[in-house]
Every structure is written in C-alpha cells, then in structure tokens.
Design a binder for these strands. Structure first.
Length: 430
RNA sequence: GUGGGUGUAGCUCAGCUGGCAGAGCACUAGAUUGUGGUUCUAGGGGUCGCGGGUUCAAACCCCGUCACUCACCCCA
C-alpha cells in the first residue's frame, strides 16, 4: 500500500527545510532584536479551551481527539489561548511589560488553498500589560523590521491600519445599534474584497435606514485621519479613538517606518476579540491574502479567567509569506549545502584512513567537513565536493604519504597550494 | 458545505482521429586510475490514480470512484 502525505501538509526536503529555516530563523532573530522573549506551550490542549473562545462551530475546524483517559483534546489551531493561559498562571510574578514571542506549528482542518494549508508555522509577537498604543507601534515595527531584514521593502508590502474602537464609536454615533455592530463589521470587512456595487448592496441589506447607510458609505471612503476628525464631530469616544490613531502614526513616524504604513478604515478583521487598533500587512500586488494580522485584544486574559490586563499582538504565517519571498526571488539566495567548508578527497584507497583522520580533526576544530565513502579517483570526489557546495577541498595524495603535505584547493577559483599538515591545522585553529 | 481544474518516470509535462509508453530535468555509470562545475555517451526507473464498461485493440471513448489542487463559504 502506497502511503501519501495527508492533505494540506508539507514534506520538507532539505531544500524546503532551508527555506523554512530561513523564515523561522529570521523571525526569531527579529523578535530577540526587538526585545521579545521566546515561549512555547504544548502542541495540544483541552478542546474546551478553544471552544470557550471560538464557539462550537469552530470546533469542526479543529483537529480534535479523545485520549485514553477520555479527555477531549485538540491540536492547537493558534497559540494565543495558550499564551493567555500561561500568563494567567503566573500573572503575579511576571515582570511587566510582558514581551513574548513564539513560532508554533499549528493545525486547522480547513479546505487548503493557495496560501492556506492545514499545518503551518505562525510567528506570534505579543505585549501584555501596556495600554498605550506605543506597544502596538512596537509590534508593528517588529513585523516590519523582520520583513525588511528578509529583503522586502516599502515597494513590496504595506501595513494597513485602522481601529475597532474608532469604527465602533463612529457607527454608534451614526445611530447604529450596538447589537448590529458585528453584522456591520462583517460587511465592512468585505469592502476591499468585492466590487463597489456589491458592497453597497450588502450594506443595504444590513442597514435599512438610508441616511445611516449614506454616512457609513462616506466614512468608508475616508482616506485620512483628518477626514475622520470631521466625522467624529463632538463625540468624545470617537475623538479619543482618532487621537489614539494619530499617536500611533506619530510613533511609527518617529521609528521611521511611515512609508510602510497607511491608514485604511477597511481593515476590520473578522475576529471578535479585537478591541482597539487593528492592522494587516499585505503584499503590494494585493493578489494574496494577508501576510500578517494583528491588533489589540484587551479582554483576552479576562476571558480566560485572569485579571483585566490589556494586550496587543500579531501573527504571521509562513504560507503566504513563503509565496511572497518566492515571488520576490529572495529564496533563490538561500542555499542548501552552502555550509560545507571542507571536503577531504584522497587519491588512493591506501590514503583513506589518513583522510578520515584529517576529517575528524577538522570536525573537532569546528569545521563543517565531508568526504567520500567510495573514493574512486580524485575526479569523482571533486565532483561530489561540487555537488555538496564545498568551499575548499583538502587533497590527500602521495605527497602526504611521503612528506605530510596537503593540497588545499579553493573550489571557487580553482587555485590550489601545498602546505604541511601541521601548518594547515595551525591555521585552522585560530 | 458549493463550484471548476488536474491525475502518465523521482520532478515538470507531451502523447494527434483508439494502434509498441515518450521528452526535458534529476539520478547512476562511462569518456576521465592525481583535479570539480561544462560537454558527450550509455543505463536504470511506469499498476498511464483506482474499478468497471465499449472495442480485434484503451493513457485516449463511456460510467463510477478516489486523490490532489484552485476559487467561493469561513478564517481564531
């Protein structure tokens, strides 16, 4: 019976693994550079933990199972609940602000499509215990800092930023009832995804009052914060929300990433738990789904039985990001075998043990070293050295047997020189 | 959950009106027993997704089925 990989999963052959590591190493380095500490939790948790937040409907998209103790468990579809659980458990002893990151492997039983699989990696960066939008600015900076380090610029990506609080207060100010907000959000979220006519029709079905609808349409056309101030009028809540956004953009400006950032009132995000600033990062071509999404979720810890402490964070999956890096040609620079520093080749089988001895010495000196099991002529071995991308070859030939001399060959230039093995290892050790 | 597309060598795919199962890349070996990348030559590798039907004859036509994939729905 031929077994194949499960739908929506990936096999990571060495060349794929090189790309995956390129992404994940970049994430970790950027996180640490920005002052975040790494955490992780178990790969499965109680099913109830995810149901509690997301409802039964979401449970059908979980990989859930029962263990032998009749516990209902689920493979983690996100790590935020685990983060909330872990922080709550030690809330009184953790120094604040809590700046944590994680790169969990996650599973969601959805229909796979471009940029979305059933198993993937997601970089999460969170700041807990800071009310000020400076924390939001720092999370955004961290994401942009990574993307820049990976080789993407403001011509490639855009951070679209809005505020749930602003939208909620303005909609309320317009006279839309609070109970209707979630439905309206769902429609507004479609603004950039459907044609203008279709959008207006959807809005018509949701908001019956033509006057209110007109206001909402005008609001959605707003392109700057200045315009929003006019909408807010004298409404205190709306003004506060606009002020917060203005402060956020000021921080982003001071941090020098304004060119990446754009106010976009169409950013709503489907997730119910966002409470304030929300944002998504997109490929500039806009052909792909979001690379990254995040925002403020001030009720999260409380929802999981903890104190009411504010939090903000973002998540970035490896699937869409991988497509973008591929399209921009960034992956082509990621080598698979590039690490091999020395390849030791021997001219004759009688020199094999000498070669092996040299291999061992090089490895003990910390050098990435390889050699041929088969031997069979220098030509063969040099070919193998090329295949594994060796930088230099150490040739062990008759001159080694006679006078302990090695030939060091630079594989890029082809130049080679003879040195005594004592000199060679003295050079290596420094 | 809905709709489209595709299943042929390890990979990417060609295969006409039904008539011996193909190419490129990759792999292995040789040209080259003390010098790699290039080149040339040869070789290995197939349940044509699976099951049934039509036919003298099916990768090709028909029916069914499975898998993958793309787009919707949804998106924590």
């Amino acid at each position: 019976m031929k077994i194949q990989a499960v739908k929506g999963t990936r096999d990571f052959y060495p060349e794929d693994m090189a790309r995956r590591n390129f992404i994940i190493d970049g994430w970790k380095t950027a996180s640490i550079r920005n002052g975040f500490a790494e955490f992780d939790g178990p790969i499965f948790e109680y099913l109830a933990m995810y149901q509690q937040k997301s409802g039964d409907e979401i449970a059908s998209q979980l990989f859930a199972f029962e263990d032998r103790g009749e516990r209902m468990l689920a493979i983690r579809p996100e790590i935020t609940p685990t983060l909330a659980r872990m922080v709550n458990q030690r809330i009184n002893t953790l120094p604040r602000p809590i700046k944590w990151f994680s790169v969990p492997r996650l599973c969601r039983a959805e229909r796979p499509q471009k940029g979305r699989l059933r198993e993937f990696f997601q970089w999460n960066v969170d700041i807990i215990g800071v009310d000020d939008c400076l924390a939001d600015a720092e999370v955004i900076f961290c994401a942009v800092d990574y993307l820049m380090a990976a080789g993407l610029g403001s011509d490639d990506i855009i951070v679209r930023i809005s505020s749930r609080r602003l939208l909620a207060s303005l909609l309320e100010y317009f006279g839309i009832e609070e109970s209707q907000l979630d439905k309206v959000y769902a429609v507004l979220d479609k603004k950039a995804k459907v044609p203008a006519e279709a959008f207006e029709k959807m809005l018509e079905e949701t908001i019956s009052d033509a006057d209110k609808r007109e206001k909402v349409l005008k609001l959605m056309a707003a392109e700057s914060l200045v315009e929003l101030e006019e909408f807010a009028g004298n409404d205190e809540k709306a003004k506060l929300a606009v002020d917060e956004l203005k402060r956020l953009f000021e921080y982003l400006n001071v941090m020098g990433i304004t060119e990446f950032c754009k106010f976009d009132i169409g950013i709503v995000r489907g997730l119910a738990y966002y409470t304030g600033i929300v944002y998504e990062i997109y490929d500039k071509s806009q052909q792909l789904r979001a690379i990254c999404g995040g925002g403020r979720y001030d009720n999260l810890l409380a929802d999981f039985g903890g104190p009411k402490i504010s939090a903000t964070g973002m998540g970035m999956g490896d699937c869409v990001l991988g497509i973008v890096l591929e399209e921009k040609g960034i992956f082509s620079k990621v080598g698979v075998y590039g690490a091999c520093e020395y390849f030791v080749a021997y001219a004759d089988d009688s020199l094999r043990n000498d070669a092996l001895n040299i291999v061992a010495k090089l490895r003990k000196a910390g050098k990435v070293t390889d050699f041929s099991y088969k031997g069979g002529g220098l030509g063969k071995q040099l070919k193998q050295a090329s295949t594994v991308g060796a930088k230099e070859c150490v040739l062990v030939g008759q001159e080694f047997a006679e006078k302990k001399q090695l030939i060091i060959k630079d594989m890029a230039s082809g130049e080679q020189k003879a040195v005594s093995d004592a000199d060679f290892f003295a050079l290596i050790k420094r």
